[in-house]
């Protein structure tokens, strides 16, 4: 075994106690490698997420944070080249994106796309019913769904007028993000991955979105926040903070790690990464053998 327990232990959180050891593991990522076109982006991500946990993944642009979220949701542009992802004991990577969503994996997009002509209300209803059918529940008709959606709109303090518009079309950045959280409130995912949900939000919108996420977090669900900034973590307190660099998780800590990043910046991450890559280069021939 290499000497540095943080960098080389097979345990994802070697220096942290598992907060809820009895809670079931929802998502288990093992040595995940992925590329987009010919470019390798993820180079061995390890992460275990249990029910009731909130994880934050931080890191610079290009560190692989967003790729991780897209791979977990099954975006067709990304190819998994190694490793595994197990969701509630099932091989997640084998599932179509829609099946993952129905099974309870939710991705809140950094840039939700506009879909002209498709009514937001109808979209939300079809989506919610797909998840309900998967859970063995009855589909909601338009009237039942209206009732549900009006109740859930309160989670994100959204104007019902948004239901009448096309999906995300002409929505402001903040409105799009609220629409994402509304979808999350309707789909009731077990694992919610929120990719830079805080980007482009003013302080009020951030408070509403974070309030929504906190409201939806339960002991049975887990949240994976992908973010650049401490300010989201002021509003949503993570149990674990992971620092990503060059396609893997370089360091894992408690919520104080985010504060450290805020104060020290990412330069020390670069230094650690350089050291790690040096160590790997020395070690590589032996490991390959």
């Amino acid at each position: 075994m290499p000497s540095d327990p943080i960098l080389f232990s097979s345990s994802p959180f070697p220096d942290l106690p598992v907060i809820r050891p009895d809670a079931p593991v929802l998502l288990e990522i093992r040595d995940l490698h992925a590329r987009v076109e010919a470019k390798a982006i993820l180079k061995g991500v390890n992460l275990t997420i249990r029910a009731g946990e909130i994880h934050a993944v931080m890191g610079r642009n290009g560190s692989g944070k967003s790729t991780l979220s897209k791979v977990l949701a099954g975006h067709p542009s990304y190819t998994v080249t190694g490793g595994s992802v197990t969701y509630r004991g099932e091989n997640l990577l084998e599932l179509e994106p829609e099946t993952r969503a129905r099974a309870g994996v939710f991705l809140g997009f950094q840039y939700p796309v506009e879909i002209p002509g498709v009514s937001n209300l109808e979209f939300l209803r079809v989506s919610t019913n797909a998840r309900r059918v998967h859970r063995g529940e009855a589909e909601l008709d338009t009237f039942e769904f209206e009732d549900l959606v009006r109740e859930r709109l309160q989670v994100v303090q959204m104007d019902p007028a948004f239901l009448e518009r096309s999906v995300n079309e002409g929505f402001s950045g903040g409105e799009k993000k609220r629409n994402e959280i509304l979808q999350m409130a309707l789909l009731e995912p077990l694992v919610a991955i929120l990719d830079e949900t805080d980007s482009g939000l003013d302080i009020d919108a951030l408070r509403i979105v974070a309030g929504g996420v906190n409201h939806l977090a339960t002991p049975d669900t887990a949240t994976l926040l992908i973010t650049h900034y401490q300010r989201l973590l002021d509003a949503i307190t993570p149990d674990y903070v992971h620092v990503m660099a060059a396609g893997r998780i370089l360091r894992t800590g408690g919520k104080e790690l985010a504060l450290e990043l805020e104060q020290r910046g990412y330069d020390w991450v670069d230094a650690e990464l350089a050291a790690l890559e040096g160590a790997e280069a020395d070690r590589l021939p032996a490991e390959v053998a």
Binding site: P76, A101, V113, V126, S127
Partner: peptide, 24 residues
């Protein structure tokens, strides 16, 4: 592809996603 993926990532099957967009 991104529009299709968006709908798929909300549990809507590929074909239904295309047909939703076309009818929209």
């Amino acid at each position: 592809e991104d529009q299709l993926f968006y709908l798929q990532s909300r549990g809507i099957g590929f074909e239904e996603a295309v047909s939703m967009m076309v009818s929209g």
